[in-house]
Amino acid sequence: MSIKKVARIAGVSTATVSRYLNSPEQVKENTRSKVQSAIDEVGYAPNALARNFRRGKTSLVVVVLPQVGDPFLDNVMRGIWRVADEQGYSILIRDTQSNSHDFDEFTEMVFSKQADGILLLASISPFSEPEAKRSREKAHPPLVLGLESVTTELNHFPSVRVDNVAAAADGTQYLIQLGHERIGFIAGKPDSLLTHDREKGYRKAMRKAKLKVENGWVVEGEQTIDGARRATRRLLAHKQRPTAIFCANDEMALGTVHEIKNAGLRVPEDISVVGFDDIRYAEVMDPPLTTIAQPAEEIGERTMRRLVQAIDGGALDKDTDTSPEIVPHKLIVRKSTGNAPR
């Protein structure tokens, strides 16, 4: 059904029908009623692709994440989907598989305006180095970081995140309050700024309490369950075995608790464990996990809203506000932590 037939039935011009479809607030109420009645009568469906082409928009946003299925990122995505649906955007998910490959096809799609904006969720940049350089020198398509920047080249983009240093310090300080002095830390990947910030918070709290971090108490867990199991075995074999272990994410905490039990030890009677993120499995672990909670869905919602604002305002330039938006974290105390053993 054509727009001309709608106009003829409503007794208005095609320009009025077009104005109603694109900016209904600019059309008088009684005219809006006539046009809508005509649309309902003939079953007219606007061509969204053509309309977006005229507007110079695609109503498509690309979300780049390190891996599909991450339980914490799933909750962030829930918030993104909610706002995207509300604002009329579709989502295309790009999974980097945590590798720093060049994504030439992705780069071409973004810079040729086949997408209105980009959300990076704790992910490496999907752009090849020449494109990353170009993005700094010229106006970049709107890009917002959900969670933290994982590389320094992304620091100049706006973000929505918790204060990872303060959050990790709070988790460590809680263990210190329980009487623990030998506290190990299982980090993520060494090239991740997220890992650096959480380790920085751990060391800050230990230093404030005048507690020494022994060599071998900070080990890499690769941000995975298997990596954390290997890291935990190293901590358990240390000549000064920690009485508590702080893991840089909950997935690693799962592996840590499992490995402690495999060694015939108890959580928390022998070793306390703290995680980070409060994923959906944290509360049903055995024992339930003490962790630092990030408001995942709120981060997703705020990230998407900030991107929509950037899209409406145009490409990023030197006047764009790129300061991080910090959301509050919360220490959730459960049964995986207890007083330090004598």
Rank of each mutant, 00 (worst) to 15 (best):
R8P: 00
S23E: 13
S23R: 13
R32L: 09
K34C: 03
Q36P: 00
A38W: 02
A38V: 04
E41V: 03
G43E: 06
K57V: 13
S59Q: 05
V61R: 04
V62I: 12
D70Y: 00
V76Y: 04
E86D: 13
G88M: 03
S90N: 13
S90D: 12
D104W: 06
D104G: 06
K113H: 11
A115P: 07
I124C: 05
E129D: 10
P130H: 10
K138V: 02
L145R: 03
G146F: 01
T151H: 07
L154Y: 01
A166E: 13
A169M: 14
Q173N: 13
I183D: 03
A187Y: 04
T195E: 09
G201Q: 11
K204I: 01
K204D: 11
K210Q: 14
L211I: 15
N215I: 10
V218M: 11
G221I: 12
E222S: 11
Q223F: 15
I225N: 09
R229M: 14
R230S: 13
T232R: 12
R234Q: 15
R241Y: 08
A253L: 12
V257E: 06
V257G: 04
H258D: 10
H258E: 12
E259D: 06
V267K: 11
E269F: 07
V273W: 11
F276Y: 14
L289T: 01
T291I: 01
T291H: 00
A293P: 00
A296G: 06
E298T: 15
G300C: 10
T303P: 03
R306E: 07
D317H: 14
D319V: 07
D319Q: 12
D319C: 02
P324H: 07
S336K: 10
G338A: 07
N339G: 10
N339M: 07
A340F: 11
